[in-house]
Design a protein around this nucleic acid. Structure first.
Length: 379
DNA sequence: TCTGGGGTCCTAGGACCC
DNA sequence: TCTGGGGTCCTAGGACCC
């Protein structure tokens, strides 16, 4: 039986939440990003402008008027300032966004409970067993989200997650798009291959170089050629998605695989001259990761260190310890052993700490045997 | 004055085991 | 002048996503 899967994406989520608080900014180019700062007053002329920003932040979200000027999420704020110097720059208020995220998800769950979380502003919804005609149902969900939050969203409904993700983006903002397999040649194939979730900048570039620009051209490409260029797994997947095939289920719960914290410094730090500062940062990162683990009730066995040099090269080292932990001092000791294995001949711009191989609450059983420990002869 | 922070998944080689 | 084959775990890096 054919499924009915929705993808719901909040429109310019962070920026839209900010506009609820500052309605006087409606219709203006607004960018959310940068380090936290405080706003002075409510008058329009008191809001900080992009042109005054100095630092290493990136844009998290931009309102549609800001996007029209070329400011998209992920762009460096200094670069964005060159494109839209008069745009208003607001610091992110994550507590607010989490609050609104819970509100919209709860509103959807009242109508359709089978929801998969895809981050703070996106969900998949399995509507297969929910009664009602598709367009009316999708409109009901949009209305419920608006009533609960005052915010608009875009929805795509199709037989699978892959197509719904593409469909929800087709008529943003405030979109409602329903597609079936029969629509693939006319609605999906003309789109750029990069529109497929999972084809990023690198794969997109490589496809371009192969003369494959649209999803239709990808569907027409010889599967053997794609496998030759991209490997068995990814190559085969490219053929499948180009034809709109995707059987992934909507999954409600998932155990986390790792928990991490990282920070980019205001300016690059020198390993010798700034060693005390770096030490302090690393200790704090370990404490924050340990706090996250405790709060969420996990322990982990793989402790990782990440660092990024001033030339943006990133290296990681990790070590697996015997006993899973959520203890800051234990994590720090493991991080220290990682630090000894990494070249420290350049200035640093980032440090990060990660704990993986997590055990869910209550499953922190006996440590697994070390290699060679279970020595048995002749069995 | 380029390029955040928190994640997942895949690949690939070596160690080790049966 | 022979030296399998399959499996898991560990580590490092990279692509990608929100």
């Amino acid at each position: 039986m054919q499924r009915r899967i929705a993808h719901l994406d909040m429109d310019a989520f962070f920026a839209s939440v900010e506009l609820l608080r500052y309605p006087q900014l409606a219709g203006l180019p607004v960018v959310v990003g940068g380090r936290r700062g405080t706003l002075a007053g409510d008058r329009l002329e008191d809001f900080p402008r992009l042109r005054d920003y100095v630092g290493r932040g990136v844009a998290t979200t931009a309102t549609y008027p800001a996007r029209a000027l070329g400011v998209h999420s992920g762009i460096g704020l200094m670069k964005a300032a060159a494109l839209a110097p008069d745009a208003i720059l607001l610091p992110a208020n994550f507590d607010d966004y989490i609050r609104y995220s819970r509100l919209f998800k709860a509103a959807v769950a009242e109508i359709a409970p089978l929801i998969e979380d895809r981050g703070i502003d996106e969900i998949y919804i399995d509507l297969t067993d929910v009664a009602g005609e598709t367009v009316e149902l999708a409109q009901r969900i949009k209305d419920a989200v608006r009533t609960a939050t005052g915010l608009s969203c875009s929805i795509g409904v199709t037989p699978n997650k892959l197509l719904s993700k593409i469909a929800s983006d087709l008529h943003k903002p405030d979109g409602l798009t329903v597609l079936d397999y029969a629509d693939i040649p006319t609605r999906i194939w003309p789109l750029a291959a990069r529109k497929i979730n999972g084809i990023g900048p690198r794969a997109g570039e490589k496809l371009d170089a192969m003369g494959i620009h649209t999803i239709g051209e990808l569907a027409a490409a010889a599967p053997e050629r794609l496998i030759e260029e991209f490997g068995q797994h990814f190559g085969h997947w490219l053929t499948e998605v180009a034809h709109g095939r995707d059987e992934r289920p909507v999954v409600m719960e998932r155990e986390p695989k790792s928990i991490s914290r990282e920070t980019t410094f205001e300016h690059d730090l020198d390993v010798r001259a700034d060693r005390d500062t770096l030490t302090e940062i690393l200790v704090k990162l370990c404490e924050r990761v340990a706090g996250d683990l405790k709060r969420k009730g996990y322990v982990g066995r793989t402790i990782g260190l990440k660092l990024r040099y001033d030339d943006f090269r990133t290296v990681t080292r990790d070590v697996t310890i015997e006993q899973a932990t959520d203890d800051a001092a234990t994590i720090l000791a493991a991080v220290r052993s990682c630090l000894r294995r990494v070249p420290l001949d350049r200035r640093l711009r980032l440090l990060g700490v990660r704990v993986g191989t997590l055990l869910p609450p209550g499953e922190a059983g006996p440590r697994p045997p070390l290699p060679g420990e279970n020595l048995r002869l002749f069995d």
